[in-house]
Simulated scan of single mutants.
Amino acid sequence: MAGALPRKVAVVGVALSDTGRVDDLTPYALHAQAARRALADSGLDRSVVDGFGSAGLGTLAPVEVAEYLGLRPTWLDSTGVGGATWEVMAAHAADAIALGHANAVLLVYGSTARADIKAGRRTSNLSFGGRGPLQFEVSYGHTLIAKYAMAARRHMHQYGTTVEQLAEVAVQARANAGANPDAMFRDPITVDDVLSGPVIADPFTKLHCCVRSDGGCAVLLAAEEYVADCAKSPVWVLGSGMAMSHTTMSEWDDFTVSPAAVSGRIAFERAGVRASDVDIAEIYDAFTYMTLVTLEDLGFCGKGEGGAFVEKGRLLRDGALPVNTDGGGLSACHPGMRGLFLIVEAVTQLRGEGGAGQVLKAGRLPELAVASGTGGWFCSSGTVVLGR
Rank of each mutant, 00 (worst) to 15 (best):
L315D: 01
E164Q: 15
R174Y: 01
A218E: 04
T123D: 14
Q349F: 02
C209R: 07
D116L: 06
L195Y: 11
M89F: 10
I280G: 04
L368W: 05
D116N: 11
G387R: 03
V108E: 01
R388H: 12
F300I: 00
G80P: 02
C217K: 04
G355A: 10
G299F: 08
S196M: 13
T19W: 10
A15W: 01
A362L: 09
D45C: 09
I189R: 03
D45M: 08
S233C: 07
D23L: 14
V105N: 05
V385W: 01
A177W: 04
P198A: 13
A90P: 06
L25V: 09
A34G: 03
R274I: 02
G120Y: 10
C217G: 09
D24A: 12
K8A: 11
W252T: 05
N103K: 14
A267W: 06
D45Q: 12
W236M: 04
T205G: 08
A218V: 07
W86F: 13
G132W: 15
A275W: 05
V9I: 01
E251H: 14
V81N: 08
G387K: 03
I283M: 02
R265F: 05
L16P: 00
V108P: 00
V105Q: 08
G376F: 02
T190K: 09
S380P: 03
R338N: 09
C230A: 07
S240P: 05
G299A: 04
V323R: 04
W236C: 04
A369H: 02
I200Y: 10
I266Y: 07
L134E: 14
D116R: 11
A369L: 01
M290R: 01
E367G: 09
A61G: 10
S78P: 03
V235K: 14
A170E: 13
V163C: 03
V385G: 01
F255L: 13
G70Q: 14
A151E: 10
A66H: 07
A15L: 02
F185C: 06
G120Q: 15
P322G: 13
C209L: 05
A346V: 11
G355M: 12
M337R: 11
T26H: 09
G80S: 14
G80M: 10
L340C: 06
V323N: 03
G51M: 12
V88F: 10
L238V: 00
M1Q: 06
T112E: 05
G43R: 14
G264Q: 06
